[in-house]
């Protein structure tokens, strides 16, 4: 039953051209644009190219667009349309329905990320770091689930899909500029910007996946160390987990299948 529901949610996604464009095509377009504009030379002070930085950064952006923006907006739209209420009146367990929605956006997120990474490798000479790939995939999935929880929190706290759309865009876009996604590191940012970015989960997500693409770092990633030359995703994982749990609790507490009920 869960598998069937996941299939339905995926089918719906692939029938929405606008969603398809923003989640699947947009990150690749941004990768092409940013590496064209900034050139693909090594970043000053670092050993890697622009593409080596932007590929994981835009993979993260794709994951967040799927798990946060698309999940929140599509769920709120279904609620506006009365579809959630109608589903709640069938014997389908509500948990199965919601789990299916979340798993389907995670699958979409992984497709989007795979496409960005494949484009980087094929067209922009990005070096895959296969020894770090398991930790990278691990952080992609946990980051995706964490942002899915945040998306559902926004749905639970807003009444209409218009508000949800406004809130997700107003939070995601500015944060993406501060969180080493659109702007590569190397510029001095004001302290408050750094603190803001450090507080929210997006930067930890992009840094963790970015590190999985840094040839200079050593290790498989599943360590707590903060040594400069070591690859570790667990500290970032912990922050993503904490945000995910926090958002998940609020989402479950306040979620309504119909705002009038």
């Amino acid at each position: 039953m869960l598998v069937k529901q996941i299939q339905y949610q995926l089918m719906l996604f692939f029938r929405r051209p606008a969603a398809l464009f923003f989640v699947i095509v947009m990150p690749v377009v941004l990768l092409a644009l940013l590496t064209q504009i900034l050139g693909n030379d090594p970043i000053p002070g670092q050993t890697t190219t622009s593409a080596q930085f932007y590929t994981p950064a835009l993979a993260v952006f794709g994951v967040v667009t799927a798990c946060f923006t698309y999940l929140a907006v599509s769920t709120a739209t279904s609620r506006d349309q009365g579809i959630l209420k109608r589903i709640r009146g069938t014997p389908l367990p509500p948990s199965v329905y919601m789990t299916a929605r979340i798993i389907s956006v995670t699958v979409i997120a992984l497709i989007s990320a795979a496409l960005v990474i494949a484009s980087g490798v094929i067209f922009l000479d990005v070096e895959m770091q296969w020894d770090k790939a398991v930790a990278g995939l691990f952080i992609l999935v946990t980051g995706g689930l964490s942002f899915a929880a945040l998306g559902m929190m926004v749905v639970a706290l807003c009444r209409s899909s218009e508000t949800v759309q406004a809130v997700v865009n107003a939070t995601l876009l500015p944060l993406a500029f501060l969180s080493e996604i659109f702007i590569r590191p190397g510029r001095e940012l004001p302290d408050w910007m750094i603190w803001t970015a450090d507080f929210f989960p997006l930067k930890h997500f992009s840094v963790a996946l970015g590190n999985a693409f840094k040839p200079s770092l050593e290790g498989y990633g599943f360590t707590w160390t903060d040594a400069d030359d070591a690859f570790s995703v667990l500290p970032e994982f912990l922050i993503l987990l904490a945000w995910g749990l926090f958002a998940g609790v609020i989402a479950v507490r306040f979620f309504k299948w119909d705002v009038r009920l």
Binding site: L12, R15, R16, G82, I83, K85, R86, G89
Partner: peptide, 16 residues
């Protein structure tokens, strides 16, 4: 499982 509903307002997925 043993009730059937037709709600007051339409609630269908337009793209199915």
């Amino acid at each position: 499982e043993c009730i059937g509903l037709v709600l007051q307002s339409t609630a269908l997925e337009p793209e199915l």
